[in-house]
Amino acid sequence: MNKELEHQFVTELENNQNIVHKVCSLYTNDRDSHNDLFQEITIQLWKAYPKFRGDSKFSTWMYRVALNTAITLYRKSKKRIRTQDYESVIFKIKADEYDETQEQQLKLMYKAVKQLGDIDKALVFLYLEDKNYGEIAETLGITEVNARVKMNRIKTKLRTILNP
């Protein structure tokens, strides 16, 4: 693969890396795994890049590859020790923007989301990224109706986790 394509790819990914980091923070629990998953997603993106025609936005295309890698292709390594001092980025909240109850509420919500299964997480992730149900359904390969049904179930599930 030629140098120019490579440069183009790395630049695009550098500018859009937040999407990948967000996926990693949802699906992993420590820094090593986060980096590991980030690397695997990068490899998958790069392998698929020649097929990216630019008919959709680079970021749109990234969602699919990143989620597919996290849900399906990535093999969690079991050897990793959970680093105590590491607080997943997902729990970092800019404290000055919320009052105490809201902040508490947010932390609980993120914790609840982290407890969801792989597929549920994918739906929540796309929902949080402001994707509509059509896009969510297309990414996962289910119907739009089922995506809605599933999302409602997840909301119920989250409610139960928050108010046991």
Partner: peptide
């Protein structure tokens, strides 16, 4: 509320440099 906060998360995410990403490919 979560969605609003999520959208603001970008600034808190780690930032990898061009070279770091390049190495990964």
């Amino acid at each position: 509320l979560l969605k609003k906060d999520w959208q603001k998360k970008d600034e808190l995410m780690p930032k990898l440099s061009y070279d770091e990403i390049h190495k990964m490919t």
